[in-house]
């Protein structure tokens, strides 16, 4: 129930915006994530953005996981 899917913010109008997921646009409230900018990925829960995904962290996590995984398989 705490399901929240990452979606890209494509438009921002004050405390509202439009996000797009798999080609479908949806209205979203930005009241809880006022810092969100167009192009950001948001976690959207029950019609509200609840977090802006940190792309730098996302990149770091992916490379770290790759490293751990290949180090384990290579030894």
């Amino acid at each position: 129930m705490c399901l929240a899917v990452p979606t890209m913010l494509t438009e921002k109008r004050e405390d509202h915006g439009t996000v797009e997921l798999a080609g479908v646009s949806r209205e979203v409230s930005l009241l809880l994530v006022p810092e969100a900018q167009v192009g950001d990925y948001l976690l959207v829960h029950a019609g509200y953005g609840i977090a802006v995904l940190d792309q730098g962290e996302a990149q770091r996590t992916l490379s770290l996981l790759n490293e751990i995984a290949s180090a384990s398989l290579d030894t």
Binding site: P6, Y41, Q55, L65, A69, S72
Partner: peptide, 23 residues
């Protein structure tokens, strides 16, 4: 990059599971 597929990458899942097994 935020796409879910990057976090479902089977070789990475397999590598992480291998790490769990070793530990």
């Amino acid at each position: 990059m935020s796409g879910a597929s990057s976090y479902r990458n089977p070789p990475v899942v397999a590598g992480l599971l291998d790490r769990v097994r070793r530990l």
